[in-house]
Simulated scan of single mutants.
Amino acid sequence: MQQLQGFALPTQDGFFGEYGGQFIPPHLKAAMDEINTAYEQIRHTAEFQQELSDLFQHYVGRPSPLFYAKRLSEQLGGAQIYLKREDLNHTGAHKINHCLGEALLAKYMGKTKVIAETGAGQHGVALATACALVGIPCEIHMGQVDIEKEHPNVVKMKILGATLISVTRGTATLKDAVDNAFKEYLKDPENYIYAIGSVVGPHPFPKMVRDFQAIIGDEIKQQSQAQFQQLPDYVVACVGGGSNAIGAFTAFLNEDSVKLVGVEPAGYGLDTTQHSATLTLGKPSQIHGMACYVLEDEQGQPLPVHSIASGLDYPGVGPQHSFLKDLGRVEYTTATDQECLDAFMTLSRVEGIVPALESSHAVAWALREAPHLPKETKIVVNLSGRGDKDADYVAQKLGL
Rank of each mutant, 00 (worst) to 15 (best):
E369L: 12
L367G: 09
D87I: 03
N382W: 05
T273V: 15
I308G: 07
V350F: 04
P371Y: 02
T163H: 05
K378S: 14
A103T: 05
S53C: 14
R169H: 01
K187W: 00
I216C: 09
T333V: 11
A214M: 11
R349T: 13
G267C: 10
A162C: 13
G242A: 15
L160V: 09
L231F: 14
I220Y: 01
K397G: 07
R349S: 15
A130D: 04
E51F: 04
G352P: 05
P65H: 12
P371D: 07
E369H: 12
A132D: 07
V294H: 01
L279C: 05
E139K: 04
Q75H: 11
V114M: 14
A356G: 14
G101R: 00
A103R: 01
Y68T: 01
M32P: 00
V261S: 06
S348P: 10
C340V: 11
C292V: 08
H151D: 12
Y39F: 13
K187L: 12
P202D: 04
K259M: 04
A31P: 01
K207E: 14
A31N: 02
L66I: 09
R210D: 08
K70L: 15
I308V: 15
V200D: 02
I42C: 13
N97K: 04
L186R: 04
A46V: 13
V363S: 07
Q41G: 14
D13G: 06
T45Y: 06
S285T: 05
F344V: 12
L398P: 11
L104V: 05
K259L: 05
G262S: 12
Y293W: 03
R62S: 06
N36T: 01
V381W: 00
I81Q: 00
E190D: 11
V235S: 05
H372W: 02
N97E: 13
L174G: 06
F252P: 05
A30G: 14
K113P: 02
A370F: 05
E117H: 05
V236I: 12
K183W: 07
E351H: 04
A343P: 03
I159T: 12
F228N: 07
A106M: 09
L400H: 10
Q225L: 15
A366N: 03
Q229K: 04
L253D: 05
F205A: 07
A309G: 12
Q57P: 11
Y314R: 06
T173Q: 02
M142R: 03
S243K: 01
G318Q: 03
R71Y: 08
P204S: 11
G135C: 12
T91G: 10
F16I: 14
E184Q: 12
N244K: 00
G101W: 00
H90Y: 02
F182S: 10
Q225R: 09
Q22D: 13
P25C: 13
D179Y: 07
Y234G: 09
A364I: 10
K107N: 13
Q274S: 13
A31L: 07
M109N: 04
G267M: 09
C238H: 02
L231D: 09
V200R: 02
T334W: 01
G121F: 00
S64M: 13
F23S: 15
A128C: 08
V350T: 15
Y185C: 08
D256N: 14
G217F: 02
G77E: 08
K183N: 10
